[in-house]
Write a protein that binds this DNA or RNA. Structure first.
Lengths: 337, 337
DNA sequence: TACCTATATGACAACGATTACCTCCCTATG
DNA sequence: CATAGGGAGGTAATCGTTGTCATATAGGTA
């Protein structure tokens, strides 16, 4: 009900000018200690609070960062968001989030909206949008998880290709040659890179790839679930499966358990809840979204503080976490193809 | 690089006044069709975009809503956030999120910060903070999942007590009398209500509660995990467990699998990823965060459009999803206590 | 013709903070 | 003693938009 206190109210109450109060507020040195304390006391007494909107208008930047992810509800991105928010919050910076749902239009709209809002910076998980328009803007932006198209920007990501090679080699080391790859559409960069890693590891081991084992259109758990059964129905089914995305893994695992085929070796690129409690527990690559998120917000804050952009890719290291499902040996007696 | 286009730029380009352009922008009727189209064309030609900050300053509200949850990374809240963002986005409204990490101070800070930012509305999962300060504010607020302390507000939640009764009765119906209750601290309202439901169902069935079976300080998966083993070490261990929170369930399930005691009946109030793929799959109550989120944002938008607050609680209905773990019968031959 | 009304438009203030620029006044130095 | 220098503080413009009020023009009525 009570009107908010403004600078001018504090000024009048202390017999000073609006500018002096503003100086105190911003820690400007040209204020005598006496006035400073007097003003400060009055400010707390009256319960003064800066009007961030007015300040934003004047200074040209809103003390908020924009965060664009494909899907907030996805545990991977949820943790990333949490990490970013946590650190931003510590600095009194708000976080506006946006889900693209993997749709190009929404991605563009969100970024445009943020620009319009004069956010102080952005962290973006880019899909296919054309980011060339950010070139002629001084807005600090950090890309996460994949590089943007058409722009050289600062990117923080995991080495998807190398990770996929690690995983594939792990399965090969356990005697598998009939390895299935299940991933999302190849137009999604991450998916493509992981597929590339898979192929390169197979090639390096001189194992021919069976096209029947390659699935590149399992977008989510529901679509992935039937895939497993189809693979098992093949005349010559695979003995190991490499899943390139957590949601796909969830669907596959569900299917494996439903039809009782947990004897198949299974490697998931991403971790997911309960992956360690299943029987067998699921072997994964350790690339926590939290690490990505923390690195991204850290760099963004540095940039916002005036740091120079560090154009190029920063790779977060990857490590295999063996839990059982990935260490299932290939059935012996089967000849190498 | 190029300066943003302002109203005055459009005005000059069309030989009109800033006010006329503003009128066109806001669809004010008192503008001739001729001028209107002329201005509109010029606006798109110059690529005019409203400065939302300036507008916020003038109108007093920022076209953004504040969303406060305990933990964004928690899958439950992540889905809630996603649902809210989705609907808000459809209306061109941004969502600023904040995680309290179950800490009182942060909760208060976040809400204060949002108020300061003049957000158009808030959706809050309240913990113990004193919300009486929002009384004398006209800001639309919708509380989710639990009611705020010290204020009568609009609350959207599930009937925790009734849900716990349903769950407890379910276990009782399967022959259990030695039922353990594992929950979070009782000062968290939801926890208390669920515990109340448990007690009332036990009382209604005339089953005495064994204090050794009651754990009210398992805050997260890590703390919960050892609890299960301790329960099993009792001289007279429980035959069924009711978990009042998803993260606790995750810890307990992990322990059950680790020491191979999946013969114990298990009921989780909340759902969690993979709960349906474990063996046995975990019986839960169906109360999707998405339903909560959708209802909350829907109401908030109505309020923002001028709708009257609907003070009181709106309950989302609950339903048991039987998956196996909750239907394990009590070992026969054991005498009722 | 004088008067009134409705419509289209413009001039100007206001929102609350920041900031460029100006004015005191006190001290120090030649 | 005059003046330069610097600290402390004030005045007013500004950010881009919206709201209030005034104005001009056209058409209708007495």
């Amino acid at each position: 009900m009570s009107k908010p206190v403004r600078l001018i109210d504090v000024a009048q109450a202390t017999n000073t000018s609006i500018k002096t109060v503003s100086r105190v507020l911003n820690g400007h040195p040209r204020v005598s200690d006496e006035t400073r304390t007097r003003v400060q006391e009055k400010m707390t007494e009256l319960g003064y609070q800066v009007d961030v909107v007015a300040r934003s208008l004047r200074t040209g930047v809103d003390n908020v960062i924009g965060l664009v992810v494909p899907k907030i509800g996805d545990p991977f991105f949820a943790e990333l968001v949490e990490e970013v928010e946590e650190e931003a919050n510590r600095r009194g910076i708000g976080v506006i989030v946006g889900s693209t749902h993997w749709e190009l239009d929404r991605e563009v709209d969100l970024v445009q909206g943020f620009k319009q809002r004069r956010v102080a910076g952005m962290i973006i998980t880019p899909q296919d949008a054309d980011y060339s328009f950010v070139k002629d803007s001084s807005m600090p932006i950090v890309f996460v998880d994949r590089a943007p198209r058409n722009v050289k920007g600062e990117v923080i990501r995991v080495d998807d290709k190398k990770g996929a090679e690690l995983a594939t080699n792990h399965l090969i080391k356990h005697g598998h040659t009939k390895i299935a790859f299940i991933g999302d559409k190849l137009r999604i960069k991450t998916s493509k890179l992981r597929f590339d890693g898979f192929k390169s590891a197979m090639a390096a081991a001189k194992i021919a790839i069976n096209d029947d084992y390659i699935i590149n259109n399992a977008e989510n758990a529901e679509l992935a679930e039937p895939v497993f059964e189809e693979l098992m129905k093949l005349d010559n089914p695979p003995t190991a499966i490499f899943c390139a995305k957590s949601e796909i893994s969830i669907g596959i695992v569900r299917a494996m358990h439903r039809i009782n085929r947990t004897d198949i070796a299974f490697f998931s690129f991403d971790d997911f809840t309960m992956a360690d409690s299943l029987q067998p527990a699921v072997t994964i690559l350790d690339h926590s979204p939290r690490v990505l998120g923390r690195a991204a917000i850290k760099r963004l804050l540095e940039r916002m503080d005036g740091g120079a952009p560090r154009v190029g890719e920063t790779n977060i290291p990857l490590k295999i976490i063996e839990r059982g499902s990935g260490e299932i040996k290939a059935p012996s007696g089967k000849a190498r193809k």
